[in-house]
Design a protein around this nucleic acid. Sequence first.
DNA 1: ATCGCATTACTGTATGACAATAAATCTGAG
DNA 2: CTCAGATTTATTGTCATACAGTAATGCGAT
Lengths: 246, 246
Amino acid sequence: MSAASKPVQPGFAYQQVAGEIEAQILRGDLKPGDQLPGEEQMAVSFGVTRSTLREGLRQLESDGLVHRPSPRRMEVTVPQADQLTTRAGRAMALMKVTFRELTQVTMVTEPLAARLAAQHGTEDEITALQTLHGALVAAEGNATRTIQIDEEFHTLIAEIGRNRVLGLAREPIALLLFRGFEQIAPFAPNFYKRQIEAHSNVIAAMRDRDEDRAEKWARKHIEDFWRGAQIAGLEDKIALNPGALS
Amino acid sequence: MSAASKPVQPGFAYQQVAGEIEAQILRGDLKPGDQLPGEEQMAVSFGVTRSTLREGLRQLESDGLVHRPSPRRMEVTVPQADQLTTRAGRAMALMKVTFRELTQVTMVTEPLAARLAAQHGTEDEITALQTLHGALVAAEGNATRTIQIDEEFHTLIAEIGRNRVLGLAREPIALLLFRGFEQIAPFAPNFYKRQIEAHSNVIAAMRDRDEDRAEKWARKHIEDFWRGAQIAGLEDKIALNPGALS
DNA sequence: ATCGCATTACTGTATGACAATAAATCTGAG
DNA sequence: CTCAGATTTATTGTCATACAGTAATGCGAT
């Protein structure tokens, strides 16, 4: 298996166009921020019609390699995280991944995020976390709101950890997983408190710059979540109906 | 931050078209494997021209939601892993992520993969691993080949672990990281042997169904890699020149 | 120089057309 | 009656051309 790369775009002019521009970007001939020439000009230079060129551009556009601040301006851009998140989330949803799969991974990503956050967090960042945590406490009992804040909380921790790779990898997973809270909450009323406790312990550990403790509590947090999922009988259930994605 | 979803596709007919079809897919009105109607027909039904419809289709195509077995047939498909991998890899490369970031994450993903593999691996799968390992041994001294086999090895382990989420998350990261071997090898000649040793220990642990040991050796393996990266002075260097992606 | 307005250039979309070819249909031999 | 081969048909990929709307540009007055 594997071996082959599939580089040679067979025919399809629009694919060649997209491929060529992509190559220019990856090669660095076009740098993020650069503005692309007009469509007419590019069309001519590639020897295709505007329609064809346009199909290629649409492809690059949804590849996240170019972006359109105004309809008149199309510029090169580095793929935005949220785009990848959406896409990966959609893929996982369509693949019908289970809560078990999501949890197994989250069980290692979130503790790592917490550890890194404890390592790098500034005073301001910890304060921001604390504020968010306050909002979580205030939302006790409201599942939807809790989920939303929880997502933000975890994302913020990941950001504080200053590891973009982790950020990219964990985001879509965490999103899918934590959304399951809605299905768990009815079965485990004390869940809100557990969650709050875990979060505050992570924050406290960060304050103390205690990486191990931060990591430990993050793990506890996810283990707890998993227990909830088990109680709700979600273990091998499919996470989230795809329709709910923006 | 965050809050807003950006659902409302402003004008841009082609985006609305893409959005509508996407919604139909996510909603389940169109299921993977379904064939899409002809362009003319769709164009009419959306009230746009073929050109416009086509731009929308190109968008979906590179979103990986539809796929084209033959030019005459366009069908709904679940996003292919390798597509996401390419995209994520490209994004990380353009973001200029460092080896440190990659390693930190890999330090938790690969051990997890090994653990899951030890848990699920069948006799056949372990044999396949062993075979691949043989190829690795045979390739000692050849960096390019070693990288290639190593990638396959790790990917196979992840597959054996039967966690698609992990597979999706780790693949692009591992790809970028392990490619750094090329830059490390010259500085650490004994690297080949270390790698071989680690791999065989993981296999042995799998044979014994010893999850902990499998995990431990996988971690050792990555730690070793990191040490190599340090010796080569790559820690905060940017992984891989983007051009090298297929 | 700065501001407001006219001009220009470019995008988004629409028509219409045509060669190439995959798929469907028909045909005739076994 | 079945199936390989020939023929027709339906679609796709691409091109050419056009036009309204509008962001960007340049110009003239302050």
